[in-house]
Design a protein around this nucleic acid. Structure first.
Lengths: 204, 204
DNA sequence: TTGCAAAACGGACCCACGGTCCATATCTTT
DNA sequence: AAAGATATGGACCGTGGGTCCGTTTTGCAA
């Protein structure tokens, strides 16, 4: 696990430089997979060795970037005002949470994409940012009376905000941001609506 | 587009051989990304050149395999008896459709996985087997009165059956097949249930 | 049959990219 | 200031997808 902090100032400076350079590269629209590690290193004015020592591997860099961009959202969720923060009625919070995820993916398309299929061996489901979202969502869902299978439901709802789906709808299909938010909100509403009898009706 | 049929018998024989070998390799559980093209060629007793001439590239091979395995399902859907085939009440058919997709992914885990992140440049959403499922699902959803946004809903429902999610739940988390089918069925039911007021209640 | 062009074969080869190595440079500490 | 510790960077490596091309097979026709 080659990711512990160093106290040497050059190391710190370089780490920042890499992060900044990568951030810039991933914002400058381009399919994420043709940004190579060498590109990032060059853009940061740093050798590849440095880059890899600082972040371990490609996934590590992506993760670090992602966490950094996610930070404000995380804070808004954990200690912010309603409807995102705690102390919001569950239904509304679920809606707000998913809306926030959607907006985040809309704003950080290429990066989110890159992270999700950084796959190599790891499914996106092992990433701990996913586990955080899922855990929180599940917990909130659990407070809604009459809703069973919160665990699965949380996964299914999050699946509707997968980066590649969002990218496809926004990019290929040209669906505008607000429209997509409405559609997702509508979908979430349906899932949360107190249906007649949720479980049981499986015929086989 | 190097994928048209050849009439020469050696070409045909080899194509079959490759398909069979690949099928075997992808069934013999192993993460799909450590089955290389060279492996497939070797297993089929064929040179790499042959393999690539027959299928164009890795994605092409995967696609061909996938379509082949999907064939029976497709047939059951298009011309089979209820609840999968046509002439089924929309609600039931949607449920059956998604159940079929789920089962397919459960049965063909590694292959589906491999195909979905064969990404390179293409999102899974550009694949035409996806478009088929989505188109059909949307059409069926459209027949359900009071259901808006069928297009998005179809995407969202299919997202709940993404190969990596299914793999994660079945593998990592050890959720048994039947349980997962129930959960998905429950989820679908919620989405289809005639909620109080489907649209509109977006507070922001 | 045999002759011959068209088509397919296969495996050596190429190259891009993630990742490692290590001689050298930079820091920190006393 | 000297030494031990730590970081640097770019040459280098392995892997795997994809290509090339001299050789072989096939199918048609004479």
């Amino acid at each position: 696990m080659p990711e512990r902090q160093s106290s040497r100032k050059d190391a710190i400076r370089n780490r920042e430089a890499v992060l900044a350079a990568a951030d810039a590269l991933f914002s400058r629209r381009a399919s994420p997979e043709d940004i190579t590690m060498a590109d990032v290193a060059a853009a940061a004015g740093v050798g590849k060795g440095t880059l890899f020592r600082a972040f371990g591997d490609r996934a590590g860099l992506l993760r670090a970037l992602y966490e950094a961009r996610l930070e404000p959202v995380r804070e808004a969720v954990e200690t912010g005002p309603p409807p995102l923060g705690p102390g919001t009625p569950p239904q509304d919070r679920v809606r707000a949470l998913l809306d926030a995820v959607l907006c985040f993916k809309l704003d950080n398309g290429p990066l989110a994409l890159a992270l999700e299929d950084s796959g190599s061996d790891s499914s996106p489901y092992r990433a701990d940012h996913y586990e955080r979202w899922h855990g929180l969502l599940r917990a909130v869902l659990e407070q809604i009376p009459g809703l069973t299978d919160s665990d699965f439901t949380a996964h299914a709802l999050l699946a509707a905000t997968r980066a590649d789906l969002v990218e496809h709808l926004a990019g290929e299909r040209g669906i505008p941001r607000e429209r997509m938010r409405e559609q997702l909100a509508g979908f979430v509403a349906k899932v949360l609506a107190p249906g007649p009898r949720p479980g049981g009706t499986v015929d086989e």
